[in-house]
Amino acid sequence: MDDATLWWVLAGLLVAAELASGTFFLLMLALAAAAGALAVYAGLAFSGQLLAAGLCALLTVGGWAWVRLRRRAASPEANPDVVLDVGQTVQVSAWQPDGTALVRYRGADWLAVASGPHGERHPGPHRIRAVQGNRLVIEPVDHP
């Protein structure tokens, strides 16, 4: 059995294991095995094949892990697909000395705080940036 066949068999086994377990990372490793097989066709020695498979594994697994971390870092409380209030506007009539404001939204009074540690606090229209429990995190409408 030649080297390319061994790489393709390894790729097939990894795909089968991924189908059995549902682990997406095994699919990335199967792509790396396919890269090893393609390296055989390119005429690379075994060390070159391992390097191609290793680089492909590093890029695909690392890239997928990075994408998952970025998704997890994005707060669901500020995601308009999860919280439909995000992006809506409210009117702030006055700010309290403690940095909060009482705003009327959806027929009820809500406690609102400015976004950021030293958010701008002036009366007027504000956009809901996130909902944290029963508090609205807001920013001025003219804020970029």
Rank of each mutant, 00 (worst) to 15 (best):
D81G: 10
D81N: 12
D81W: 10
V83R: 03
V83E: 14
L84G: 06
D85V: 00
D85Q: 11
D85Y: 05
D85A: 14
D85S: 08
V86D: 03
Q88S: 14
Q88C: 06
T89A: 14
T89L: 10
T89H: 14
T89P: 00
V90I: 14
V90T: 05
V90Q: 03
V90F: 02
Q91T: 09
Q91P: 04
Q91M: 12
Q91C: 06
Q91N: 09
V92W: 01
V92K: 03
S93Q: 13
S93P: 02
S93M: 08
A94D: 08
A94C: 09
W95S: 09
W95P: 04
Q96F: 15
P97V: 11
D98A: 08
D98K: 06
G99C: 13
G99R: 05
G99A: 10
G99D: 13
T100Q: 10
T100I: 15
T100V: 10
A101F: 02
A101W: 00
A101V: 04
A101R: 00
A101E: 02
A101H: 01
L102Q: 13
L102F: 12
V103W: 00
V103R: 02
V103T: 03
V103N: 03
R104S: 08
R104F: 11
R104E: 12
R104K: 12
Y105K: 00
R106V: 05
G107D: 09
A108S: 15
A108R: 09
A108V: 08
A108H: 08
D109I: 15
D109S: 07
D109M: 13
W110E: 04
W110K: 04
W110G: 02
W110T: 03
W110Y: 07
W110L: 10
L111R: 11
L111H: 01
L111K: 05
L111F: 10
A112S: 05
A112N: 04
A112E: 07
A114W: 00
A114F: 01
S115T: 10
G116K: 04
G116C: 09
G116L: 04
P117W: 09
P117D: 10
P117L: 14
P117C: 12
P117S: 14
